[in-house]
Design a binder for these strands. Sequence first.
DNA 1: GCCGCATGTTCACGGTGTCAACGTCGGAGG
DNA 2: CCTCCGACGTTGACACCGTGAACATGCGGC
Lengths: 217, 217
Amino acid sequence: MTAKATYHHGDLRNALVETATELVRAGGGESFSLRDAAAKLGVSANATYRHFDSKSALLTAVADVGAEKLGQKMRRKVAEAERQNERGDATTLAIAWFKATGRAYVAFAIEEPEIFRVMYGPHGVCQYARARAGQPPADPTGALILGEAVDRLVSAGVIGPENRAGGDVRAWTVFHGFSSAVVEGASYFPTKAARGQALEELLDFTLRGLGATMLTA
Amino acid sequence: MTAKATYHHGDLRNALVETATELVRAGGGESFSLRDAAAKLGVSANATYRHFDSKSALLTAVADVGAEKLGQKMRRKVAEAERQNERGDATTLAIAWFKATGRAYVAFAIEEPEIFRVMYGPHGVCQYARARAGQPPADPTGALILGEAVDRLVSAGVIGPENRAGGDVRAWTVFHGFSSAVVEGASYFPTKAARGQALEELLDFTLRGLGATMLTA
DNA sequence: GCCGCATGTTCACGGTGTCAACGTCGGAGG
DNA sequence: CCTCCGACGTTGACACCGTGAACATGCGGC
């Protein structure tokens, strides 16, 4: 933006996060190098230390914006689902909401596998939360929206109130497990369609596990 | 064993894998260094290249023995469950079997978090399988035993035959998601008991998702 | 207009994975 | 029994990495 070709960069911090994100996306978090990122911005490697304590801290920032993007994606997909089912009853809507969160989570992991890996790797969101214990983790959005989705299932009577507590965590476990499996290649799906179908079956599986008897949306 | 204090080591390959496993266990796969491992064995760093193409290959080997240990643990726990329920009916036994696999998987992740991370990281089992595409992945045992557990659920009538296909993958998804969450610290449990209870609830959740109406074991 | 301090730079160090060329033995073939 | 060869390990070197310390630059407030 205000990129003056001068000694001072202007907004190096954000530029670094952005470039680092790009590099991670391209080559993975393992091969990412501080010097590369700096060089790509025409800046000396040590300049980064004015904005981040370490390479790890920069990767943590990358993970943070990743977490935020994930949250946004979940919000967006849920809003979209709501729009498409605006004429449906509460049950349909609640199920659509819930499934949208799961689809969004998995979709993010598929679109941004390397970022996803960093987010849940040693520099990621969780480590971040642990390091600054007391402060909230980087992405409350995702967790909150999932909690809200489960609340809606309860309100609509899709699942019993006894399944509210911990329901969001269990759902997250499934979504994350599937995403992780896909990203790491643990579960191989020959086609996109096969993977999609597996996900849909998994969503039904999850709803059933939460105590739902009605699964369609 | 036959550790002659001579020029030639005797069994450097296995010694390297063992030492690497130890170092990873202690300091994590990120900080693991080839030179450290070699030094610990009183051997030059480049000696490793007679047995492994790269550092990554060595870590892959570490992941492989990890996968094998995981498989063994699952076998052992299942056998134990079978012994404890030898007087139970087929239903009880099938459920006990199934739950034992899940508990074993999670227990391994908790006992060996760093190895677990390496196993599902960039050098891990899945990458390994992909690299040598065509060859089976390092650990068929875990997958096989889980498949057998689901088969037993079907045979005992705990779940319907329509839930057999993909049931093992879905169960694995849950187990792995929970393990991953615990290892990465995404889900924090204040006490071991709380974590244990969450796992038990998750096992019931999984069975319900698979279509079971009876959950006790 | 000057000066302080945030921001970048340069120089330096120890450590890492890996390549190339060279030693050293143990075991097979005469 | 000797010889030699190939598997195994060594040394030296290189490029790259994260990071610390000391120095340079120039924008914003007095």
